[in-house]
Write a protein that binds this DNA or RNA. Structure first.
Lengths: 168, 168
DNA sequence: TTTCATGCAAATAGTTTGCATCAAC
DNA sequence: GTTGATGCAAACTATTTGCATGAAA
């Protein structure tokens, strides 16, 4: 359920993010509606990389509800607040991830269960800047996704299917 | 118009690819229709990374025509033939690129004019395999896209807008 | 002449938007 | 009380599919 294979985020950090969202809303004169808070709770309360559909599903699982448009609009507000980052892993839909103030990181995507793992590598940051310059580009950002099989899926397909989204 | 900033593909190589597609169709008992050949000519005849819409536009510019469904279905055949590779640069649509038998390469995408430049880097190949292993993943493939400004756009916005797709 | 492609239109998936209604400050 | 959010449905973009017609081998 948590999906954080490396360092699960502490409850304190999650609570801080939730409070930060309330502050953001207040400072921007945006109403703190029940829907916004519920959606923020879902996205900020996990280390997973959720699709808009995942968010709606999680809401229902927690007894909350919000229209599709509200989910998308609130995700947009969360992204603008800087607390959430939008991701596109070329799956045909976008995912949303709590940013936790972490600067930049790469992603490993399991092609079997859809689970996402993060890692950071300083060399890559430098390399991409140099590679861009070598081709007369000024680098703004980069995106690396490594597709492969996670340990669980490699060992046994039965291990876990909970992370599989949009499956047939 | 050509987009090949590094090493423009020779006319001979293009002709070889076109012939290879004819052979592929023949070997698979697929009719070599005028539409298929026209679409193959467009995609195999450039070094650019075209969207399905670009292909349709180019067809019209060359006096040819094909329905949207035919464009997509033919692109699929071209991908199956191995002569073309499908790309997703998180722009909301896919692009198609003549593969020219080149193993694997990374992409630089100009965020201003949409132009794509390719480069190859052996270290990256090795690095991604090692990084995956370090996180208990078995690497299948990876995708690196560096977003930035190309030299032309950095120097003057007036230089070229021809590569801009889906603007405004 | 049989098989498979084409084209159109309808369907689909993800996401966005208009608008009447409703809730937050 | 105002301002702005919500929800539904319609709109939209990229892409796919069903089906009657048309062309290739």
């Amino acid at each position: 359920m948590s999906g954080g294979h490396e360092t699960p985020t502490s409850a304190a950090a999650i609570a801080a993010d939730r409070e930060a969202f309330r502050v953001f809303l207040r400072e921007h004169n945006l109403p703190a509606t029940a829907q916004r808070l519920a959606i923020a709770d879902v996205v900020l309360g996990t280390d997973r990389h959720l699709s808009a559909d995942d968010v709606a599903r999680e809401l229902r699982a927690h007894g909350a509800r919000a229209g599709t448009a509200t989910v998308y609009r609130t995700l947009e507000v969360l992204v603008r607040s800087g607390l959430v980052v939008e991701r596109d892993f070329a799956e045909g839909f976008k995912r949303y991830e709590a940013s936790r103030g972490i600067p930049h990181h790469e992603h490993l995507l399991c092609t079997m269960c859809g689970r996402v793992t993060e890692f950071r590598d300083e060399r890559l940051e430098r390399m991409t800047t140099l590679l861009a310059e070598a081709h007369d580009f000024s680098r703004q950002r980069h995106r690396l996704v490594i597709y492969g099989l996670c340990g669980a899926c490699r060992r046994g397909p039965s291990s876990s299917t909970s992370g599989m989204h949009h499956g047939s």
